[in-house]
Amino acid sequence: MTDRPELYAESATAGVVTDLGRTRGPSRGLAVNGALDQFAARAANALVGNAPTDPLIETTGFGLTLRPSHDVLMAVTGAPSEPAVDGRPHPAWTPLSVRAGETVRVGVSDAGLRAYVAVHGSFDVPRLMGSCAPDSMIGFGTSVTSGASLSLFRSHPPLVNRRFGATVFDFGIPRDIGRVPGVLDVIDGPDAVEFGSGLQRLFDSRYTVTPRINHVGLRVAGYVPRRPAPGEVLSRGVPVGAVEAPAGDELLVLMRGRGITAGYPVLAVLTSRAQDVAAQLRPGQEIRFRRTTAAAATAAYLERRRLLDRIALRARTAFAALS
């Protein structure tokens, strides 16, 4: 096709094209990586009728300005923001019909850290082990910087009469969907007993998010539980969300880009929902850890996945009816 649709990045600072992660990576020694706020990423793709694993843009800390060469259907989710099309504000967490040449400004407010932009049909980008997720350790991935142009697989005819805007869709998304709570739910880690009474103080203490946050880990300053008898531990697989207690006065929460093995004991593990929350924390924010159970965490997780199922179903139904 000679007239391939493209999405041009007029301005972008810390954007990447990512997906839900390199699920075949960990068994081959690579981190899973992928969107840190998995719920927001899944929702963005669902809102434009994409498959959950389709590539989308993740922008961290900074907004971006995009301009499609063709008519496209987009959705912005994640950190609370109000996308603007040619200066006119539109709601996030809903499909957004953008005409060829219009400028879409996606902001990242200080109520969160990462925003996601999905485009119907998704991006044509290189993949490794089936995933486009960037891996900074091995130098793989597609970054979105000012002046970059991303190939799209498809354009999308305008969906709605612009007099009605995109609000004609109702996906049943709760109003507080992008709110970032200051509490991280954790489940006791397999090595929790090694920390004795220090573990309880994890839940009684307040922590401050440091500026040292990236895809590999999130460092929070505050009380660090100590093991009475630290020794050399055999390297073992370590889960995403693991809370580790290295030397110093900061706890380390492992994110999706973590090395898959470690020789440190695992104090606690963030729930899947809490991992999404952690992805939106900003430096200086005060947080605390709250103990929960795997059963409660799974119930909360399933509730959100069912919401995603409903969004995907309603999006597909709406687009089928309109096309």
């Binding site: 960990p26 055999l234 390297s235 073992r236 697989g237 370590v238 898959i260 795997a294 997780y301």
Partner: peptide, 23 residues
């Protein structure tokens, strides 16, 4: 199919999606 395993020396880390299966 979505279960993945990371083998090391004496342990396997088994990752799964609670949407598809349970511990």
């Amino acid at each position: 199919p979505t279960v993945s395993a990371v083998p090391t020396y004496d342990a396997v880390l088994v990752e799964f999606d609670p949407y598809h299966t349970t511990a």
